[in-house]
Design a protein around this nucleic acid. Structure first.
Lengths: 245, 245
DNA sequence: ACCTGAACACCGTTCAAGT
DNA sequence: ACCTGAACACCGTTCAAGT
């Protein structure tokens, strides 16, 4: 699913050059990537080691290295595979702002479905085959919105950064082992609130007064607010006249 | 420098309770934190191990555990120490938007001075003594700007996330070992541009056409643009009338 | 072309034992 | 109260050797 394209890999890709496999054997590059994703979906980012992954596949750790070169190379493949889950509609000039907001939501949803994705993306330039498709589609929407070349690229980069910044925060705290069930999430929020409320009021009047607001906020609402602020702010830099709401 | 305050630690803090040290010995909690920061400033995030850090201090790894409890606990302390480098001016209602932008720049500067800081912050709630001071000061500026309680907290959280998202991107790629000197940075940019230019134009018209814009962008300008979009967008939610420029 | 076992050079952490 | 050596249970990666 990842190597039917004829696009040459970027020069820094950490993968060994291999001829395509003939039959679909129990162990193959794709099978390794799929198993890695399944393992991390289940047990979190830190649970992935070459040894445990190999065991899952019924081999020794050393066997994996022939297929994926290194753990780093494997994570490159995992990232592009997960990016492939983000689908973007063809650009519609009339709806470009809504399309951007919806794209941001889709991207966030993918990052929540695989809470290790953002952490995994750190230091990796998204230029695999799936990432290229996504990048092209996003840029198309930016251009459809009338953003000049420079702003289109900036908007593209900034949106990625904004969504990742938000999601990293969201998935970071206990985004590891256990799925962050609502109960644990609420408890953590209450713990913060309780701690802030009990702080000396002379030195921390605002933290004290606003303590309740920290637990209260729903992440979906928070995210919508953020991308509204961002996309509407971006629209003010478009060539056309559809500045703000 | 970190434990002269009387604020009780948050309940999830991973540190052992210890009486304050009498004399300033070669090995102490503060000395360990300082050495850890120096080590990571020099050799990067991954270079920090309890063993190498101990060697730097002329002891064995096991000795550190009495002072900091765990590596995780040590990183908690390191984070708060670095957050202490961010200084915020007292809130000035007339200049609140500029103050926010300047705060964002200061925060980014700190994250660039210690390129591992953002990575280190993942999954850690910033509620150490220095973080509390910073949070309080930022909230004060938000309130001074006329943001209602809910928006003040949201703005505070979102700004943190936006700055971290940008800086994570900036420091992630090769933000590890060598300091990201301009030469390597430019070369990496050229590599991306070259790769994008050579892509098949029928399938990737936008990536192809806009390839040059990726290398061209200066990060300082890019950051200013992002926080302008964000802060001005935020200002539209203030109670007062100073909506946009 | 693909897989294997064994080894190398690391980790974080614990713990009994020292002073 | 503080430090230590040694051990436990892990890592990613290499490499000679197998089929």
């Amino acid at each position: 699913m990842s190597d039917e394209t004829d696009i040459p890999p970027p020069p820094w890709q950490r993968l060994p050059e291999r001829p395509a496999r003939r039959r679909r054997d129990p162990i193959s590059r794709d099978a390794i990537v799929a198993a890695a994703i399944a393992l991390m979906d289940r047990d979190g980012y830190d649970a992935l080691s070459m040894r445990t992954l190999a065991e899952e596949l019924g081999t020794g750790a050393a066997s994996l290295y022939w297929h994926v070169g290194s753990k780093d190379g494997l994570l490159d493949l995992v990232m592009d595979q997960l990016i492939g889950e983000v689908v973007v509609p063809p650009a519609d000039p009339a709806r470009w702002r809504d399309q951007l907001k919806e794209l941001a939501r889709t991207q966030r949803a993918t990052s929540l479905r695989h809470p290790y994705l953002v952490r995994l993306s750190i230091g990796r330039i998204p230029l695999g085959p799936n990432a290229l498709r996504l990048n092209e589609a996003v840029l198309a929407i930016m251009r459809a919105g009338g953003l000049p070349p420079r702003m289109a690229v900036q908007g593209f980069l900034m949106m990625l950064e904004v969504v990742n910044g938000f999601t990293l925060d969201e998935t970071g705290v206990s985004g590891e082992e256990l799925p962050p069930d609502p109960a644990a999430r609420a408890e953590a929020g209450d713990m913060v609130t309780g701690y802030l409320k009990q702080l000396p009021g002379e030195r921390f009047p605002n933290l004290n007064e606003l303590a309740g607001e920290f637990a209260l906020a729903d992440n979906d609402e928070r995210f919508d607010l953020l991308i509204e602020v961002f996309v509407d702010g971006l629209a003010r830099h478009a060539a056309g006249r559809d500045g703000a709401t």
